[in-house]
Design a protein around this nucleic acid. Structure first.
Lengths: 238, 238
DNA sequence: ATTACTATTTCCCGAGTAA
DNA sequence: TTTACTCGGGAAATAGTAA
């Protein structure tokens, strides 16, 4: 199991024993157990690592002391830096699509105090009374939408009044056309399919950008990677 | 160069292209260039990665789209976590040795205002007027000492008066016998060899611990790893 | 241009075993 | 016990090439 091969495994195992700061006493058979190879292979790999300049070996009688060289440490640091780059860099997800006209219910729902007050508080801006409907124009955008829906972290709770009950929703903050703060709204029981998003903004976006039906718009979301992976993993569906 | 083999390299390369969040378009020949194998090998490795469940491939005409599966992402996260454990954990260096009597100059030098004031300010305690001499009793401790000397970050500057000039020194904060705050002093031009350290403390340690010549003592230093590696690397002498 | 098959070579693993 | 050699089998890499 696992993709790491003998040599890398040995370097990592040695580093876990702080072999960068001091010599570490080892036997080839315990090394073999750790990295899941035979004793013979562990011995050979250690010799190779020494020849290639990743470790030094000092043999005193029957005991062997190993430590990482600078090259060995740098190898691991380089790998660590690459992975850090992957997992600590914000993940930018971009959705592209075209504006279309809905039934105008967005304005009605957002205007309800039960929604409006939550939106205002949790989005950090006063939402314009209406949503911009966008039909996503690529499968990449649709996939991105599905991913964002699972990762959306701003929860708008449903509520009831005398007449009926109103469902909940989730949002993520996004950037509209690379400039304006906005949020993408994921409504729990919507009649829209996965190719549609609704955008909430402090502005009347149609006016601000002179948008007509069919015009292209772009939404981008920056996710903190730790957050991203926490929400993504363990769902069986990366 | 480098220890990573084809498969791991491919996973990392894909992750660098954010293939955990979306499908990434690739060709086997550019993949081959990236991971430094032949095109044939890149093709085979990609097929194997798919069979083993690390990636999914989607082939559309002549184009191939690849993305990491959850298993693939977890593989990388696991590796990242191991390396993080290595490089973010404090590095503890312990020196052990036996007390011996010096010439008593320690008290004289520390009492000089030119040293005393710097020590007090930079160590954060009022040093007792004297140093405890410790002869290190193992080669591991001596090695640790050499390492600490290179990494010591508290600088005590030399100075002059009418009669003579006084050399500089470096210190690291340490813990004496697992309890008391102290510092290990590395004097620039000392007559001691590398098996000896001098300990500065707010207390008269001989009294506080009832120490006689020959008694064993232990000094430990916790180094922040980032700091540790910054100071250690690039010196050609890990 | 692609991908990926087959054939060949090269490399690596581990059993057996010496020291 | 150790370490580490030889050696045979098998895996992995590349060349050649088809599609």
């Amino acid at each position: 199991m696992g993709l790491l091969r003998g040599k890398e495994s040995i370097l990592i195992f040695l580093a876990e024993g702080a072999a960068f700061a001091r010599e570490v006493k080892i036997t080839t058979s315990m090394l073999a157990k750790q990295v899941e190879v035979s004793q013979q292979t562990a011995s050979r790999l250690l010799i190779q690592l020494e020849r290639e300049g990743y470790v030094t070996r000092r043999i005193v009688g029957k005991e062997t002391y190993v430590r990482l060289t600078e090259k060995g440490v740098n190898e691991l640091i380089g790998l660590y830096a690459r992975l850090k780059g992957i997992f600590e860099r914000p993940v930018k997800i971009t959705l592209e699509g075209r504006v279309f006209s809905g039934l105008g219910e967005g304005a009605y729902y957002i205007g309800l105090p039960g929604y409006y007050n939550q939106l205002k508080e949790r989005l950090g801006f006063e939402p314009f009374l209406g949503t911009l409907n966008v039909r996503l124009s690529s499968s990449a955008s649709i996939e991105g939408r599905l991913l964002l829906e699972r990762v959306a972290d701003i929860v708008i709770e449903g509520f009831k009044d005398e007449k009926r009950s109103y469902g909940g929703a989730k949002c993520v903050k996004a950037v509209f056309n690379d400039v304006d703060e906005c949020a993408i709204l994921f409504i729990e029981r919507t009649h829209h399919d996965a190719s549609v998003i609704e955008v909430v903004s402090p502005y009347k976006l149609r006016e601000r950008y002179g948008l007509k039906d069919g015009d292209k718009v772009r939404l981008s979301v920056n996710l903190q990677p730790a957050f991203f992976f926490n929400n993504l993993l363990g769902t069986g569906n990366v």
